[in-house]
Nucleic acid binder design. Structure first.
Length: 892
RNA sequence: AGGGCCUUAGCUCAGUUGGUAGAGCGCCACCCUUACAAGGUGGAUGUCGUCGGUUCGACCCCGGCAGGCCCUACCA
């Protein structure tokens, strides 16, 4: 068995992953008798490359799935990918543009074929990257949002909601992306603060008796004005309501109407009303029965409803022209700088135009009611809980959802128009004739559905709904949904609504919301900033395990986390530590005979060392902590507990303590220690596995005690390890802690006095009672070795002349650690060390004295706190006395 | 405008019923000690953003202020 002295992930990861897959370990069973545990993976876009955000999101899920799988659950992690209408269509269009082709030239069907081609070629890229990360999904169930099954679900839901009249078609003002020439939902609009201007424009009164001045940030929309509006209580304009003004640049006359909406304080108190291009104006237009004049084409240029000179101009160009013309004609009163918030298309970044058009909508008022209730009642829990508020706030203000998109890539809306009678057929199956007049002249609606419409059905559409499948019976509702807060509205809320409506049950019981990954300076990672970190590159350099552990170690309480390669490097080193610790242990275990009981084998307690019983005690503590932490989604705590147990307890102390035993002569003790070592190592691999699956599986396969595969071995807990952990001893653990304190004290004297590690020194330990005597004697060999001693005498009395002395107190046991310095060093360093220690202790003493001198403290604080502080004070005092004596001796 | 979050060592962050602050990295010193220099041992470092309140006692609870971040929203 040869292991190199460095861990090379590249030699391990692909091989191990393939083996897991071949063995079918990721596969969940629809009909298992084991308790189910299921997670649906938020389906990444087919166009996507794995980014660090995915890496984080997936690692959390994989940790949970692996943990549950090992804990005896029938664990399903259901993967998929999203057709991502806009994103994918854009990618292919961009490709076509390079060939000089526009999709409009190709026609719909050939274009869609072309997108499918692209999908078949590149759509699997992200899946391959997920495998690099170690995602243990049940790949047999991988679902694409345009798969036949999902399409069936989509149509079923659409038809059902249409029949309930919750889906309707209507002409309304919606957000329009001129770049996409498609409608957008409210959520797809991102508002950004932009520096703009407020133009004050004079509108003359028709009767020539003067004029009114309106203020606007969008002068070009003036061409679509159909009224001006004032506040009904505004005295300045009292007499003007009902009169008409002449709209500059046109030959239109506009009525002056009154509406509470107008803020008297802002601008001039007169607002121009453009009902077809502004959401507020739209409402006012409806209230006052105004004319709606649409002045835009689909591509955002001005249309035939404006004077000829402006037709065909983009909104931006038209604005310049309109302002110039107004100025020339003397209508422009002034222009002042003004900050405003402008909606941009989240996909293309173009400015979104409010646009009047006929679209499909979902009325959310009914369907959102139960979705609110389940969160209020805690049936669906957010973790961290603070997101509950965000969710409910949105739900309480929910607007109708515009679901139609003027794209070609996606689920086409299952509505057909009859050319003869105008009837609309909405149907799950493609109809062959009009259900009203039996005409065969049916045209399907050209539009497709918002991508989130299909994703919103994900928890059940992926499990075969509307069929009543075994998968649904077993795995729905899922246990936890893991995602970032950016898609709570887009996705989480919609799944809750659809799940309750169509499955009569919540889609998941817990929503775990994690933070966003930022760069080391706390900025969002983005292509434009060029600060994105490619996780695949990180895996190539540091290994998937190191990356996973880095992410988990920072994953606390849903807060954003900053990514740094330095930290990644640190955890890469941790992987190496695990590797080498195992390498060392395996060398010791080479001719160790595994008892027949295997993982249940227990050493004879009489042969066990202090360290053996100490490490088993610590093992119990870490098992308990990790179990609690994982249950509470405290990933960084779990990772931290595992890190410090493995490195600082198992490696730094236990393996060092075990060396003298393993290299020693006492065969019974040696066998006991080797068995403990093999057992603990086995638990370390199992405990670490969900976090760092590759290295642990690789090493596990070389362990003397193991079963077939780590990935399906049992996750260790204080329950499963009861018999083994009972051999640990808290009392002996404390006693060994005293020994560790003594060793540390010797090392400290050595370090502070600059005695080189190679220099063997003589030490005398002076225990103050029998118990100390017993403990130290039992561990003399270890102390000698771990402190690098030539000899170690345990004598209660003896000369202290020319010695460094450190009093060690631990849980009522006192030991003086005495190192004769004569001939080794001069005493300057030691004098400094003592003075420093005295100073430090005296500071604490004065603090304690002050507190204990405070009558109110003694009177009010709990007895045990007061007693504890008193004891601490006594101990410190005797410590300082002893240090003072040493100091005097050295100085004399 | 409304709501939420954050401020702790040089950096990144823990700190779960209020008892006097920790980790990792970095830094300093000494070491290639037979698992590991991607390592070992020892060491230094904080008026816990600021002001006030409650309390015997506050990083923790309450309020004001300052600074940073995010979300929601129709102010032309």
């Amino acid at each position: 068995m040869e292991l190199s002295d460095r861990y090379s992930p590249e030699d391990v990861e692909n091989r191990i992953y393939k083996w897991w897959e071949e063995k079918g370990y990721f596969e969940a069973d629809d009909t298992s008798t084991k308790p189910p545990f299921s997670i649906i993976l938020p389906p990444p876009n087919v166009t996507g490359q794995l980014h660090l955000g995915h890496a984080l999101d997936h690692t959390i899920q994989d940790v949970l799935i692996r943990w549950k799988r090992m804990s005896g659950f029938n664990a399903l992690w259901l993967p998929g990918s999203d057709h991502a209408g806009i994103a994918t269509q854009s990618v292919v269009e961009r490709e076509l543009r390079k060939e000089g082709v526009r999709r409009q030239d190709m026609g719909r069907d050939p274009f869609v074929d072309r997108v499918w081609q692209w999908k078949h070629q590149y759509g699997n890229r992200i899946v391959e990257q997920m495998k690099r990360l170690g995602d243990s999904c049940d790949w047999r169930r991988h679902t694409f949002t345009l798969d036949e099954g999902v399409s069936k679900s989509v149509r079923r839901v659409f038809v059902d909601l249409y029949k309930k009249k919750w889906i309707y078609k209507g002409t309304r003002l919606i957000n329009w992306s001129p770049a996409l020439e498609s409608a957008l939902s409210d959520l797809e609009v991102e508002y950004q603060d932009v520096k703009g201007s407020l133009w004050h424009i004079r509108y003359p009164l028709e009767d020539g008796s003067g004029d009114v001045t309106v203020a606007t940030t969008r002068p070009e929309t003036l061409l679509g004005d159909t009224a001006v509006c004032v506040n009904p209580t505004d005295e300045r304009y009292e007499g003007l309501i009902g009169k008409k003004v002449l709209l500059p640049l046109t030959d239109r006359k506009l009525e002056i109407v009154a509406d509470d909406y107008v803020d008297k304080e802002f601008g001039s108190g007169v607002v121009k009303i453009t009902p077809a291009h502004d959401f507020n104006d739209y409402e006012i237009g409806k209230r006052h029965d105004l004319e709606f004049i649409n002045i835009l084409n689909k591509d955002g240029t001005l249309n035939e409803n404006v004077p000829e000179k402006y037709r065909g101009l983009t909104a931006a160009k038209a604005r310049k022209q309109v302002v110039a013309d107004l100025e020339e004609l003397g209508f422009l009163v002034k222009e002042e700088p003004h900050q405003l918030s402008v909606g941009h298309c989240s996909r293309t970044g173009c400015v979104v135009e409010p646009f009047l058009s006929e679209q499909w909508f979902v009325n959310m008022s009914e369907i959102s009611i139960p979705a609110k209730r389940v969160v209020e009642s805690g049936t669906v829990k957010f973790e961290p809980e603070t997101w509950t508020k965000t969710y409910l706030h949105w739900m309480n203000n929910i607007q109708d959802w515009c679901i139609s998109r003027q794209l070609w890539w996606g689920h086409r809306i299952p509505a057909w128009y009859c050319d003869d009678c105008g009837h609309i057929v909405v149907s799950e199956k493609d109809p062959s004739e009009c259900e009203n007049c039996q005409s065969k002249k049916l045209r399907q609606d050209e539009d497709v559905l918002d991508t989130w419409f299909s994703s919103g059905l994900w928890p059940f559409s992926t499990m075969g709904w509307p069929n009543e499948t075994e998968a649904l019976k077993t795995f729905y509702p899922t246990n936890v949904l893991v995602t970032g807060h950016d898609i709570i509205f887009f996705w989480v809320a919609r799944m809750v609504m659809s799940g309750l409506e169509f499955m009569s049950d919540v889609p998941f019981r817990t929503v775990y919301i994690h933070g966003i990954i930022r760069d080391s300076q706390g900025r969002k990672m983005s292509k434009s900033l060029g600060n994105s970190v490619d996780p695949v590159e990180m895996i190539d350099t540091f290994g998937a395990d190191a990356l996973r552990f880095t992410l988990m170690s920072q994953m606390s309480s849903g807060r954003d986390l900053k990514f740094s390669t330095q930290r990644l490097e640190g955890y890469r080193n941790f992987m190496n530590k695990i590797w080498n610790a195992t390498r060392f242990a395996l060398a010791g275990l080479e001719d160790f005979e595994v008892p027949a009981e295997g993982v249940n084998a227990l050493p004879d307690v009489n042969d066990m060392s202090y360290a053996d019983r100490w490490i088993l005690h610590k093992l119990g503590e870490v098992e308990k902590a990790v179990d609690q932490d994982l249950k509470n989604y405290r990933f960084s705590d779990a990772a931290g507990a595992l890190y410090s147990f493995t490195w600082h307890e198992f490696c730094d102390w236990y393996l060092e303590f075990s060396k003298p035993v393993v290299y020693g002569e006492n065969e019974a003790e040696k066998q006991a220690t080797l068995l403990v070592m093999a057992q603990v190592l086995n638990r370390v691999m199992r405990l670490l596995h969900p976090f760092v699956p590759f290295i642990t599986e690789e090493l596990y396969q070389k362990l003397p005690i193991r079963s077939e595969a780590l990935i399906v071995d049992e996750y260790p807990t204080v329950k499963t390890d009861k018999a083994l952990l009972e051999l640990g001893s808290e009392e002996i653990a404390f006693e060994l802690d005293l020994v560790r304190e003594v060793i540390t004290a010797i090392r400290n004297i050595r370090g502070e006095n600059r005695i080189k590690p190679g220099e063997k020194i003589k030490v005398r330990l002076s225990p103050q009672d029998d118990k100390g005597q017993k403990i130290l004697s039992a561990n003399k060999v270890s102390i000698t070795r771990l402190a690098g001693l030539e000899s170690c005498d345990i004598l209660p009395d003896g000369s202290l002349a020319k010695c460094a002395v450190t009093p060690v107190q631990y849980l009522g046991i006192a030991v003086d650690v005495i190192v004769p310095l004569e001939g080794l060093v001069d005493f300057d360093e030691e004098i400094q060390r003592l003075e420093k220690n005295i100073e430090k202790s005296e500071k604490e003493i004065s603090g304690l004295t002050k507190r204990l001198g405070n009558e109110n403290f003694v009177k009010n604080a709990p007895e045990d706190v007061v007693a504890g502080q008193k004891k601490q004070l006594d101990q410190l005092k005797s410590k300082v006395d002893s240090l003072r004596e040493s100091l005097l001796r050295l100085k004399s």
